[in-house]
Amino acid sequence: MSHKMEMVLSRGTTGLVENATKITCPMHKKIFSLVDGSNLNGEE
């Protein structure tokens, strides 16, 4: 996933949210599932 042609998720933090593996975007603090890519913030 890129943002403005930068691979920022490589600098994101990983962990667990409700037993789901997640990664956090360091630019926007959005949380995404590493299983299916869904937004775990509850936003579309």
Rank of each mutant, 00 (worst) to 15 (best):
T14P: 00
M5P: 00
K29H: 10
H3R: 15
L34G: 02
E18V: 06
L9K: 01
M7I: 03
M27R: 15
V8A: 01
I31Y: 00
K22H: 05
T21W: 01
K30G: 03
L16I: 12
V35E: 02
H3S: 14
G12P: 05
L16P: 01
E44Y: 05
V35Y: 00
G12D: 08
M7K: 12
K4G: 15
S38Y: 06
T14V: 13
K4N: 15
N19G: 04
M7L: 07
S10I: 04
K29L: 10
A20N: 15
G12W: 04
T13G: 03
I23K: 06
N41P: 01
S2V: 10
K30C: 07
V17S: 12
V8C: 11
S38Q: 11
C25W: 02
I31S: 06
P26M: 01
G42R: 04
K29V: 01
G12K: 04
P26E: 02
K30W: 12
F32I: 09
N39D: 15
K30M: 12
L9W: 02
N19D: 15
E43P: 00
E18S: 14
E44A: 12
K22D: 02
K22R: 12
S10Y: 07
M27I: 14
N39C: 15
M5F: 12
D36Y: 09
N19Y: 05
G37L: 06
E6V: 11
M7C: 01
K22I: 11
V35F: 01
N41G: 02
V8N: 09
V35N: 04
T24A: 13
H28E: 04
E44N: 12
T14I: 10
M27T: 12
M1W: 06
L16S: 14
E18K: 15
R11W: 06
L40I: 08
T21L: 13
V8D: 01
K29Y: 05
L40Y: 01
E18P: 00
N39T: 04
I31K: 00
P26W: 00
T14N: 08
G15D: 05
V35L: 01
M7G: 01
